[in-house]
Each structure stands twice: as structure tokens, then as C-alpha cells.
């Protein structure tokens, strides 16, 4: 037999089969393929290694690879399920899937909990909430008296920490979000409803075009 030259497209090491990713997420196969185009762009903006590094994530979010932001860090780390310091293609698709309008509300609530659980202890603690409020004030160039910050944090915490043990567990968080559904508003990206319509420029690839 002669040698067989494959025309399969070149994919990076972290590439996962779009069919499998589509089965696990609200995206269909062509949407996963379209998002791969976005992923390739993001993951090659600084280091072309098929993985999104934190600087690349910051560059995409803020047009500045050096702009640090507590919340962007938390989003990055929550995408980075393997905790190896980069976002791989499968991690990117699975996490974005949670932001899909059709994703289960439960998964959005749990993702938000993980974002706010800064030290990944399984609880949102009072100090973490205060740290986030202070970080946001800093980010927004707002100044509030220390007493006011303490009052806001205390009030929020007393409302959410229904067991009164000084920390918010995931059950308390779910109950708190059910009373305040706007808390997960930013967990839905309407764009993802129909990627191929909203972002036709992503849909340029096919197995043949890519080879």
C-alpha cells in the first residue's frame, strides 16, 4: 500500500472533538466549530500555542495584556478547570456553554458561586465579599468610607447567610439567588444564542478549508 496523506486539519494539542463538546453543552456542532475560530484567535494573540494564557485573556477583555482585575482573574481561573494556568479548547467551550441563554439556571448559579469563592474553600466568606467590594471600588475609582463598606457587607451577609455561621454555602447561595435573580444576569451572554448569526465572521471554517 502506498502512503496515505491525511487532509485532516491541524489542531492543537488541547483540541477536542466538536461532536463530543456539542453533546455536553447547549451548542451545536457548527457553533462549536465557529467558537473554535474565536478560540484560535484568542489563543494565538501573544503565544501561538493553542491555549489561552491569562495575558491573552486580559488582552481580549481589556485591550491590555497587563491590566489585572480580580474578577477577570476569577473568571479565568474558573474556566481553567485543570488549574494548569491556561484555558484549553474544551474548557473554553464548556465554560462558555454555562453562559448560553439555554444553559440550566442551576449551572449558572453554581458557576457564580465558584467565582465568588475566592479561596476555593467551598464557602463565600465575609472577608472575600469585602475584598471583592473593595476591588470593585478600586476598579471603578470610587471611594467609600470604611464604615459604609462594612455596613454593605454586613447587610448583604446577614441576608444571605441564613444559617448564621459566618459563611455562605452553596445552598444558602442558591436560596439567595432565588430571591435576587438579577445576581446571575451576567451569567448569560445573549450573543451565544445564535453564534452563527451574530458572528458570521466566525463561520468560515470547514474540515476542508482548515486543512
Amino acid at each position: 500500500m502506498g502512503c496515505f496523506l491525511s487532509k485532516r486539519p491541524k489542531h492543537t494539542a488541547g483540541y477536542e472533538d466538536p461532536t463530543l463538546l456539542a453533546a455536553e453543552t447547549p451548542f451545536n456542532v457548527s457553533e462549536v466549530e465557529a467558537l473554535y475560530e474565536l478560540f484560535k484567535k484568542l489563543s494565538s494573540s501573544i503565544v501561538d500555542d493553542g491555549r489561552i494564557h491569562k495575558e491573552e485573556f486580559q488582552l481580549a477583555l481589556f485591550r491590555n495584556k497587563n491590566k489585572r482585575n480580580l474578577f477577570a482573574d476569577r473568571v479565568f481561573d474558573t474556566f481553567d478547570v485543570k488549574r494548569n494556568g491556561v484555558i484549553e479548547f474544551g474548557e473554553f467551550i464548556r465554560a462558555l456553554g454555562i453562559f448560553h441563554p439555554n444553559a440550566p439556571v442551576e449551572s449558572k448559579i453554581e458557576f457564580a458561586f465558584r467565582l465568588y469563592d475566592l479561596r476555593q474553600t467551598g464557602f463565600i466568606e465575609r472577608e472575600e465579599l469585602k475584598e471583592m467590594v473593595l476591588a470593585l471600588l478600586h476598579e471603578s475609582d470610587l471611594v467609600l468610607l470604611e464604615d459604609v463598606v462594612e455596613t454593605i457587607v454586613d447587610k448583604t451577609f446577614s441576608d444571605a447567610d441564613t444559617k448564621g455561621d459566618g459563611k455562605i454555602d452553596v445552598e444558602e447561595w442558591k436560596e439567595f439567588v432565588s430571591r435576587n435573580p438579577s445576581l446571575i444576569k451576567n451569567m448569560t451572554l445573549p450573543y451565544l444564542k445564535d453564534i452563527t448569526l451574530a458572528f458570521p465572521s466566525f463561520v468560515v471554517t470547514s474540515e476542508v478549508d482548515d486543512s
Binding site: 477583555l61 474578577f71 467565582l115 466566525f202
Partner: peptide
């Protein structure tokens, strides 16, 4: 009205606005 710290964070932080990822295209 009760000032909810989580609402303040989620609605105001640019770090949560993933739409920028798409706008980079």
C-alpha cells in the same frame, strides 16, 4: 432599598463582561 453587595459586584465589574471576547473578533 437594600444595597446588595453581590449585585453591585456582578453588575459593575468589567472583569465579568465576557462580551468583550467576541468584540475582539
Amino acid at each position: 432599598k437594600f444595597f446588595n453587595a453581590f449585585e453591585f459586584i456582578s453588575s459593575m465589574s468589567s472583569g465579568f463582561d465576557l462580551s468583550s471576547l467576541f468584540e475582539s473578533k
